[in-house]
Write a protein that binds this DNA or RNA. Sequence first.
DNA 1: TAGTGGTCTAGACCACTGG
DNA 2: CAGTGGTCTAGACCACTAT
Lengths: 257, 257
Amino acid sequence: MTSARPSTPQPPSRRIAEDLRRQIESGERSPGDKLPSERALAEAYGAARNTAREAIRILAEQGLVTAKHGSGVFVREPQRLFRFGSDRYSLKNRETGLTPFRLEAKKQGKVARIEVPSIAREKPPVDVAERLKVPADEESVVHRENHYFADDEPVQIVSTYLRWDEAQGTLLMQPKTGKDGIYGRLEELGHVMTRVRDEISARMPTPEEAATLELLPGVPVLEVLHTSLDQDGIPFEVSRYVHRADQTGLLYELPVE
Amino acid sequence: MTSARPSTPQPPSRRIAEDLRRQIESGERSPGDKLPSERALAEAYGAARNTAREAIRILAEQGLVTAKHGSGVFVREPQRLFRFGSDRYSLKNRETGLTPFRLEAKKQGKVARIEVPSIAREKPPVDVAERLKVPADEESVVHRENHYFADDEPVQIVSTYLRWDEAQGTLLMQPKTGKDGIYGRLEELGHVMTRVRDEISARMPTPEEAATLELLPGVPVLEVLHTSLDQDGIPFEVSRYVHRADQTGLLYELPVE
DNA sequence: TAGTGGTCTAGACCACTGG
DNA sequence: CAGTGGTCTAGACCACTAT
């Protein structure tokens, strides 16, 4: 009498989602494959279209499938990961004349493009003010916002904050900052990067970030709040990196003790 | 006649979501506050309940609100972050007699608990095999799975992989591994941790992970694939950490160059 | 133009929470 | 018990994509 093992009889939408998930993970449906249409799924399972649709939503939330309006629902392609390493701040990289991002893009055979949508004097966000040790209630920083693209696809958003009293009237206020970029200029100001502190978290994107990064539903972002410390332990630069997590990984390699 | 600025006349569900989002971000609705019920929202906007429900779903996906079945929808409380640092591997911590997790839990005033649901000889996942430099098609590793709790709330899942030929017949096969934990035993086997490599990514959880970590919808996970290298540069331990991103952050502090 | 996903309506019943 | 979210039905129209 007692049936097999329906410990919790799942609702139809979950059951459909589970079936499809199994098919995808077993390789029965490969990346790029088109799933049956919502209407077809509904009919096959004797359910309403909304129920089939809910099943698709569950899979999309897990990052397994992507809906293309007017076209169909497809099994998501596994993405090659960009890797941003702890060596991205390394001085060695300067010898190449390439920024870390251009270097990584080149490794992946992609064309890097960097936009600088804004450079402005601003009040810093509280977390930035804390780390840069500047007042949060004054326009104490310069905010440089950068957008990074690989083959014209957006990959990361970077907001860099510098002390206004140092950056004022220098190349740090310009889109082109000269040889070795901002770190080159900051070195001339007496700040040699000696230690870095990266605070890493993950979350779902804001609508603005989703739009800028052209993120599909169900793709989180990696946020890195980076602080550069100079030879005297003084923080002289804070940056917030927002990476799309479906194409980006981080790599930290470090000595112990 | 021409209305204000409906550049893209948003569908009602988005409009409702946007309204609520503004209210939350402006502080008009504070963390812990209860939102109007789906039925109330629907009536207020002259929409069907499903439309109001869709608006709530959008906010939940962004991690802004949490639905409590039978109770209501609430503005999510900002979570205090656990911080796992690059010093979690540090030998200094051994002097405290506490593992890094217990140490961090204590800092936060919480009670740590660790479960070891399984220890078994297995075939390693391909990414682990690559890093540990063992064959992927044999039962070449011991897999220790650990679940970590703070005040009985699950915080992270850790899968540790060790070479079978080294772990066989030692305390490394037991839940209690003795003084200084597995690293103590591995040191006795001649492996002094000298460098670590952490590969970090973020993604949505699998259903199993969501269940184990009791994750609410819209919460991603942080995955760290960790490799320990000894004094000869030989990898002797690989671990996969899966953290809930709503309560966990990572901190890496390191010298440059 | 046919087929797809995106959104919506107006109901319904169930499962859970709280007083 | 009343009120809440969770799920479902059976339609409908729209927007987009391919052919």
